[in-house]
Simulated scan of single mutants.
Amino acid sequence: MEKREVLVIGGNRYFGKRLIARLLAAGDRVTVLNRGSSPPPAGVVHLIADRDDEDALREALGPRTFDVVVDQVCYTPRQAAIARRVLAGRTGRYVMTSTVEVYAEVHGEVHAYGDSVAPVRETDVDPLNAAVDLELPWHEPEFLDTHYGEGKRQAESVFAAEPAFPYVAVRVAHVLGGDDDFTGRLTHYADRIRTGEPITVPTVNHPATYIHVEEIADFLFWTVGQDFTGPVNAASHGTLTTRELCEAVAAYAPGGGTAVFQETTEPGEVSPFAFRRFYGMDNSRATRLGFTFGDVRQWLGQAVAETLVPVN
C-alpha cells in the first residue's frame, strides 16, 4: 500500500493515540498538530499551534499538504470554519471526529426521539439543514461544556454547507475500555457500588450504544483509507442499560458490592450513562460500507476490567 501523508489534529490521548499507532504501523507518514502540552509518539512530525489562532495554524503548517486530515478536537463551528479555510487545497480528505450527542439537540431543543426506542440514523440530523451561529460564546469553557453536542453539530454543518474538500463526520458512540480512560465514569460507578451510595437514574432510563476504545481506533483508521463522505455512525452492535453496565462493574471492581439505584423525575444531574432519551445509533451505513463491528456484550467485561482492575 502506498504511504499516505496524514495530519492528526489533537489525538495525543485515548483513542487518538491508538489511531496514530495504527497509522505508523501501516507505514503512513504522520504529522501531529497540537498545542504542545504533551509530546506525540516517536516517528511523527510534531507541529505546535493553537488551532483557534488562524494565523498561527497557517504558519505551523507552512506549505505542507496531506492525503488525509483527521481532526480529533473540532468542537465548534468557529474551529471548523478556521480548519476549512486553512486546509482548503491542502488535503484530499478530511475526517472529523463527531459524537452521538449531535442527535440530542436540534436548533437548541431536545430531539423528538426523546420517547423513541428507534435507533437514530445519519439522516435524522442532516448538517445541511442545521443552522450555524458563529456569534455564540464558543470560547467560553462552561458554554462549550453545556453545548457539546450542539457545537459538534454546527461544526459538521460548516463543512457540509461549503465543502472545501471531501469530508466525513464520524459520529462516535459512548466509548469504553482502556486503562487510560480519563473520563472517570466507570470509576464513578465502582465507587458507589463499593460504598453502597445510590446511583441516580431517571425514572425512564433509556439504554445506549457503545464502542470499545480499540474498535473506534480501528474504525477511524479504516475510514482514513476509504472514500465515502458525509456523516457515519460508529457503534458496536447492541445496546446496554445502566443496570447492565453496573452489573459488569460490580463483577470486576475491586471490593465488589451491589448497585443501589435511586430514581428521579427531577431535571438536572444523573449518573453517567443514565439517559433520559434513547442513545441508540443505527450502524448499518458503516456496515454496508464494509466495516465489521463487534457486539458490545462480547467486550464489555474486558473494557470494565481494563479500566478498573490495576495491572500488577
Score class of each variant (00 low, 15 high):
68 V>M: 13
7 L>V: 15
167 Y>W: 15
302 Q>C: 04
160 A>I: 11
108 G>C: 08
152 K>R: 08
250 A>P: 11
141 P>F: 08
277 R>P: 05
233 N>L: 13
287 T>D: 12
179 D>I: 00
266 E>W: 07
222 W>Y: 07
150 E>N: 05
264 T>Y: 08
238 G>N: 02
43 G>C: 02
189 Y>S: 00
34 N>E: 13
164 A>M: 06
171 R>Q: 00
216 I>V: 15
306 E>Q: 15
149 G>Y: 02
310 P>V: 11
27 G>Y: 12
156 E>D: 10
103 Y>D: 03
60 A>W: 05
83 A>L: 04
291 F>A: 04
278 F>H: 08
219 F>W: 09
182 F>R: 15
5 E>A: 09
136 L>T: 10
13 R>G: 00
82 I>R: 10
280 G>P: 00
284 S>N: 11
93 R>F: 13
101 E>Y: 05
101 E>G: 03
143 F>P: 06
250 A>H: 06
66 F>I: 04
250 A>Q: 11
212 H>A: 14
179 D>P: 06
109 E>M: 01
204 V>F: 13
24 L>E: 08
200 T>A: 15
185 R>K: 05
131 A>Q: 07
55 D>W: 07
202 P>C: 08
202 P>N: 09
7 L>H: 15
212 H>C: 09
18 R>G: 06
241 T>K: 00
161 A>F: 04
252 Y>M: 13
249 V>D: 13
19 L>V: 15
274 A>L: 02
175 V>P: 00
156 E>N: 01
60 A>G: 07
59 E>R: 10
38 S>P: 11
126 D>S: 01
137 P>W: 09
149 G>R: 01
93 R>S: 12
251 A>W: 00
8 V>H: 07
275 F>S: 03
200 T>K: 14
39 P>G: 08
143 F>E: 11
301 G>T: 09
191 D>I: 01
19 L>T: 10
121 R>K: 08
186 L>D: 09
22 R>V: 04
281 M>C: 12
35 R>H: 14
167 Y>N: 09
116 S>M: 04
226 Q>T: 14
268 G>S: 05
12 N>H: 02
36 G>H: 05
173 A>K: 04
158 V>E: 08
213 V>L: 08
55 D>Y: 07
209 T>H: 13
11 G>W: 07
130 A>I: 00
310 P>Y: 09
107 H>K: 05
31 T>W: 10
163 P>Y: 00
8 V>E: 05
231 P>Q: 00
172 V>L: 04
124 D>Q: 02
